[in-house]
Write a protein that binds this DNA or RNA. Structure first.
Lengths: 233, 233
DNA sequence: ACATCAATTATTGTATACGAAATATGCTTA
DNA sequence: TAAGCATATTTCGTATACAATAATTGATGT
């Protein structure tokens, strides 16, 4: 169920497995930004050849989740503070529009699906599984775009949400993810009630809230290698 | 100078060559939508192995310029009329914003660069080289995004312009590309004059003009194979 | 003891070879 | 003659092997 942008991948069942496996691991913050993704290692884990791994890594690079350094290998991407700002600026432009579109076309069945999704999200949050809740939160935003029925916007939102996951991994400062759930609740209501204007405004303020939870002071994401890793994981 | 989104590719000099080679050919309409891109054939042309070709094709698939059909091969993408509409809707949302940003930050040197680019474009148009002019037109839009200094918007605009090239190849009905040049002229003036509002409005109307030049009546891009190819190009 | 340099090791870049799937071709049969 | 089927060929999917580049380690000299 965690199929990414399958169209970007070379179509192979096993390749898709490693692609979405690594992708989900990054999105749930099981793989930290900067982590090296060695081809042989991944091949051993998934029981496939390096050929497949390279294909998957290239797909992940297209999603900007990993960067490919020539003759050095693949690493989980580390978005800069500048890129972080740009991502949220783009989201602020796109997602209110998308939410309004979704509110225009939403039918009762759609609303039910969104509510069900939201319940999953709440459950994960209550269970304390933070990474899982984050993944579901992203899926919520993507689900709204799918509901809007606009494939291009959906691609863009998916892309931006993936990057946002990395950004949150790097720059999140707050501890409370509760406000998030409330904002999502209100959004669902506006969409289910076919109130585009409200949906757009709620999405805007939700994104502002998210951005305000980040610490984007000019700490460059420089070499985090050992010093930080050793004094507590 | 025709470097695409290099970050999505596996980093290899020869791989980049076939990537941008095929990319440029598609963008200048030398390769029609639906054309089969056989791996061995491309490998022979560029003197590289199928491994490299596959990597390049995957990169092009990530750009949505080609589609990869399992066990069938790679083909130049054929955007549907629905996708065409969505692409231009997304451009209508993004590019006016981008143009305004560019107008805010434009310095004299930037304006000069844009004007020089425009002159190239005019020259290509006058020389009757249609494909070349189209490529330059896309580069103009991308150049504005780069001027705006927003890497995410730039990526999106690049993506949308690439797809637009395919869309124009499939659905263009008009013959006059002159209005295009005039619109670009006016845009440069607004950007050079640091008038964001005007730049945004000019971009909007330019995109409306472009869209109106398309014939998006429900002709599905179905099998164009032989019947159409034989009674004229 | 520190810095510089050389050899080793490990990992990526590329090509080739083999197996599998799909398409095309030619034959058989009604 | 036309439709259906079996065979042959082409092309893709994957693994493996070799070559090239970069990182690491140990040695050497100041």
């Amino acid at each position: 169920m965690s199929s990414g942008t399958a169209a970007t991948m070379h179509p192979t069942s096993r390749g898709a497995a490693v692609y979405s496996g690594v992708r989900d691991a990054i999105l749930r913050h099981a793989l930290a930004p900067g982590t090296k993704l060695a081809e042989d290692e991944l091949g051993g884990i998934y029981g496939v050849s390096r050929t497949i791994v390279r294909s998957a890594l290239q797909g992940l690079a297209a999603d900007r989740l990993v960067i490919l350094e020539p003759n050095r290998g693949a690493f989980v991407a580390k978005p800069s503070t500048r890129e972080a700002r740009e991502v949220f600026e783009a989201r602020a432009l796109l997602e209110p529009k998308v939410a309004a579109l979704a509110a225009e076309v939403a039918k009762p069945g759609d609303a039910a699906r969104l509510r069900a999704h939201l319940e999953e999200e709440h459950a994960a949050t209550r269970a304390g599984k933070d990474g899982e809740a984050l993944v579901l939160s992203a899926k919520f935003h993507i689900g709204i775009a799918e509901l809007a029925g606009h494939s291009i916007y959906t691609e863009f939102v998916r892309d931006l949400c993936s990057r946002s996951s990395l950004i949150i991994a790097l720059y999140w400062k707050r501890r409370d993810t509760t406000c998030e759930s409330h904002a999502h609740n209100a959004l669902v209501e506006a969409i289910a009630g076919n109130r585009p204007q409200d949906a757009a405004e709620l999405m805007t303020s939700h994104l502002v809230d998210l951005l305000s939870g980040l610490d984007l002071s000019q700490r460059p994401p420089g070499k985090t290698s050992l010093a930080e890793a050793l004094r507590g994981a």
